[in-house]
Every structure is written in C-alpha cells, then in structure tokens.
Design a binder for these strands. Sequence first.
DNA 1: CCATTATATCATTGAGTGCTGATATAATGA
DNA 2: TCATTATATCAGCACTCAATGATATAATGG
Lengths: 118, 118
Amino acid sequence: MLLTSKKLELELKAKLFRGFSDTSRLSILEALRVQPLNVGEIVTATGLTQSNISNHLGCLRDCGLVASEQRGRFTYYRLADDRIDSLLRLAEELLSDVAKGVYQCTRYETTEGVSDGE
Amino acid sequence: MLLTSKKLELELKAKLFRGFSDTSRLSILEALRVQPLNVGEIVTATGLTQSNISNHLGCLRDCGLVASEQRGRFTYYRLADDRIDSLLRLAEELLSDVAKGVYQCTRYETTEGVSDGE
DNA sequence: CCATTATATCATTGAGTGCTGATATAATGA
DNA sequence: TCATTATATCAGCACTCAATGATATAATGG
C-alpha cells in the first residue's frame, strides 16, 4: 500500500505539471498572475475562444490551481496559491539558462521548425 | 517582434513543464534526484522498458533537464540543474495542499474513474 | 572476428486531449 | 416574459505522443 501511494504521488505530480504544460492554460495562468479576472477578461487577455478557456478553467479549478468566485453574472478567477507564482518564476529562472536546450527539443515539436542551422 | 518573443517564451515554458508532466519521465527524474544512474540502472529503478526510457531520456536531455556522460559502454545521466530539484520539491509542497483538488481532476483522467459519489 | 552487453533509433499503434461550433444554463434588465 | 449577456457543457475532429517491438550502433571480452 505504501508502494501504491508512491505511484499515486507520481501521478498527482505529473497531473499538476500537466496543468502548466499547455500554452493556453499557461497564458490563462499568466493573465491571472497580474490580477483576478472574469472569463470575458481572460478572453480579451489571451485571445482564446470562450469555450476553450472555459474548458481549461474547469480543469485548472478542479486541479486546485485557480479558484473562482461568482459576482453577479461574472465568474472571477484567481490563482489558488502563491506557490503557483513561485513555480512559474522558478521555471523562468531555469529557462533563462537552459533555453538553448529547450529550443532544440524539436522532438515533440508541432509548429514551425525552430530548428536553426547549427 | 517583442510580442513574438512573448509567445515563444510561453511555448518554452509549456515545453519545460511538459518534461515533468508524464509519469515515466517523472520517475526517471525522481531516480536521478538520488544519484546519477546509467540507463540499465534507470530501467531497474523505474521498471520501464529500455527503449521507452531511452526515448524519454533523449527528450529530457534535449530539453536540458538531464545531462549525460559516457563511461565505457555505459551512459550516465544526472539532473542538469539544481533548480530541477527545487521545482520538484516546490511541486510536492503545493500538492500537499491542493492534493484533494488534483484527486478530483478526472477531466483528463485515463485510468479508473475516481469520480466520487457526489 | 564473433558474441554479448549497453544504448539509441524508428515505425506503428492506440489512447489522450486541445480546439471548434453548437447549445445549454443562468443572471440581468427592459 | 423576452432579449441579452456571461459562462458552462458537449460531440466531433485532428493532432499529439507514450509505449512497444524490431533493429541499429557501439563498446567490450573471448
């Protein structure tokens, strides 16, 4: 049972990181880093469609990464914990050093080939 | 061009987190948190297949999350930066608080339905 | 040189999942 | 009540990508 909880912890951790591993969710989180926003404001801030955002918000909320509060017809979202900001900042620090490596990680790349010459 | 770099930074950050967002890669990283290991030792530590691990290691190395060193017939891998450990630890702290939420994030769940009664 | 060991690569497959468009729900105001 | 605004839900599609099995490469020992 202890081994199982170890495995479960792995899955939880992976799921947590998956919340950050998509550009759409990430841009939502970045927008909320500045201040709480309602869905319409997130649409404006990110340029994503409403249904897309709503879907991602649902997951982010279920995962405990954002919290929501109803105010009249609006639903305001905010980061659920300060450590989420810390996590993002730490990632930025790390990236400033390993960015070149990540640039070259075209293995699972979809968009345009960032593959530089050499 | 500045806007583009903003978008690029988002993609980099997402890609970095994606390195952590898979249980297989995560268990490889966890094993390497303890000490550097060669591929065979990682196989033993994680129980994953060799080719699977090798594939994940290739990505992790390209992304700059692990570094490798050839020693005879063996290739030893280690975490490329101390902040990777920090990132994992911060995630663990965060999880200890929001775990209940992540448990319920069955939205993108694959395995058994953790869906509680109500 | 041949067998063995260690690791990497590749094609394939199947499941995961992000996006869209349509629709449902809910709150507000006229 | 009806129209409008704000948000959520859902089905379907397209694409991503983890896992596997087979094979390639490379180093070592006999």
